[in-house]
Design a binder for these strands. Structure first.
Lengths: 333, 333
DNA sequence: CTGAAAGCGCTAACAC
DNA sequence: GTGTTAGCGCTTTCAG
């Protein structure tokens, strides 16, 4: 194994110091005289010495690695969150171990345990739901956790997200002000905390408050074809304004409407509750609650760095501002 | 640190065996009598023992971790490749450390070195280019590498991809058969091996062979707005058939054309050389060279598992079949 | 089939 | 400032 060729010991011998001293200069410890430091540095350079991070991790109990738990890499929602996380991680010199849990082979708590076994210094959890077993797994450890782009029911864990209830209400208001009275809510997974406790209540409250009805909640609409197939149902139910959690599903509805010769937004207004690149690239572009996904990821990672170094974190439940970005899928007057 | 509570030593003491024996049952070594094995297992379960992967890594020199080098997580091209990699990695119980190199802060060779320091057992490289320093970094080590969705100039490294030159030629042929004579090639980075040595030659050869001209190669067209802004130029140059490397850029061209009141495909045919979800979700849908991205990732990862366990790999330069998927952005007759 | 013991490469007291 | 010396938690010969 060439890759393991030279160790801290080789450097020490070559520079005629102890390995402790080499360790000190490698770790930027100031208690080293300038000329010995220079000498060691020279040897390090000459021998192309690179510290073995695994050995460092075992000895120091810090791996400078954080774990990421993400449902689906090909969902741009998570990809954009991840990008914010990644940039801040780079800044603070953390590596990222990514664990995707979309396939049922890997359950949330297994994913967590796997990461913990790797001795990650912290983890960022992005799945839209936090099952009890997963929460328990986190609570068994001292490894800090931050939820990004989601929240947990009991506010047990630090999180970075937006005010989903408020955002959705704003979207319904937009429909209402455009004269739409037969509103629908299209969800991916109805059982997540965010959907069950934020989006559905926002919808029900809005209907009640404005004397609208009946309720139309469609569930398990996750991808383009789900949305595409749902459209005829929406038509049968005379929906004229629909809020869709996933933008790719919203695009499915949109395309189905177009293919059926309907006019969007005239026949039906569409808003998505989480916009990625896709929402803005289709025509008509889809009005969206623009969540600051990159920032959510970045803030979550920054919070995690603080937690990992035992710094004070004033606010453990951060809500970032969002924006209701009006595009062509709602009337523009 | 609760997370470090119980070690192999605790299990050994509790089960009244040596740690060597515990290690054997943890690692599925057969040389353990059934009843001692059962006893150890029982203790492991009762104590919730979880092996420390870092210590395992240091002692065994295998971390069951592979590194992924990827330019941009939010580019669906890489996300879809990653998904294939991830699924196979899960199957073979490898974790994934992901390193994104899009920001100039992290250069290719630094990314590689960082991964090597973490003692990854192998790496998959997905960047569209392999600079010399990066190739050197790989060659200094015994850690196996596989290129996924790209190739290197000198075929020094195992790779999984498609025949780009053949695919592009097919696309140009499609234009030609539709009567289009003023063809253009729209590239992201013109200096990558794939672009410089496969796509550009394919284009030039096609023009020459069919007595077409002049050449129209547009470069550095990477995202939607690049494509959007390019359209007027394409018009000025009377382009009637354009092959675009990135599908999101192709969508930009498409949207710009629509906004300008043009008809696609009548006024201009558009084909993208690498299709993600985005190409099929816009209207008109974009005709595309459908690369089997998931499969490329999966095959690359599978190849890497073989390399990591020193198995024979018959073919180090794999080219998977692609498909020219005709949609609405080319005439359908 | 099982145990003893020597590391893996590095960090972190603790001395001097 | 610098060296000595224990480990970190596990794997892996080598005996028996």
């Amino acid at each position: 194994m060439r890759k393991q060729d030279i160790t801290i010991y080789d450097v020490a011998r070559e520079a005629k110091v102890s390995m402790a001293t080499v360790s000190r200069v490698v770790n930027g410890n100031t208690n080293v005289r300038k000329d010995t430091k220079d000498r060691v540095m020279e040897v390090i350079k000459r021998l192309h010495y690179q510290p073995n991070a695994v050995a460092q991790g075992l000895a120091s109990k810090r791996t400078t690695t954080v774990g990421l738990i993400v449902p689906d890499l090909t969902n741009l929602y998570f990809a954009e969150l991840s990008k914010g996380i990644d940039d801040i991680a780079l800044l603070y010199k953390y590596n990222i171990i990514i664990t995707s849990i979309e396939n049922q082979l890997m359950k949330e708590d297994q994913a967590i345990q796997g990461l913990l076994n790797k001795q990650v210094d912290g983890v960022i959890y992005m799945a839209d739901n936090l099952p009890n077993e997963a929460a328990e797994a986190f609570k068994r450890t001292d490894t800090p956790v931050v939820l990004a782009g989601t929240k947990d029911r009991h506010k047990e864990f630090p999180s970075v997200s937006i005010d989903y209830q408020k955002a959705d209400t704003e979207a319904f208001n937009l429909f209402y002000n455009d004269g739409r009275k037969n509103l629908a809510l299209v969800l991916d997974n109805p059982d997540t905390f965010v959907n069950a406790e934020n989006r559905i209540p926002a919808y029900k409250n809005f209907l009640k408050k404005n004397n609208l009805g009946p309720e139309h909640i469609y569930t398990n609409i996750k991808d383009h074809s789900d949305g595409y197939n749902l459209f005829s149902q929406l038509q049968d139910d005379h929906i004229d304004g629909v809020l869709v959690t996933r933008d790719v599903a919203a695009v499915g509805i949109l395309n189905s409407a177009i293919d059926a010769g309907k006019n969007i937004p005239k026949d039906m207004e569409i808003v998505t509750a989480s916009a990625t690149q896709i929402a803005s690239v289709v025509r008509p572009a889809i009005t969206a609650v623009r969540q600051p996904l990159y920032d959510i990821g970045a803030v979550a990672m920054r919070m995690l760095t603080k937690l990992m170094s035992n710094e004070e974190v004033a606010n453990m439940q951060i809500e970032l501002p969002y924006e209701l970005l009006k595009k062509q899928s709602t009337s523009n007057e």
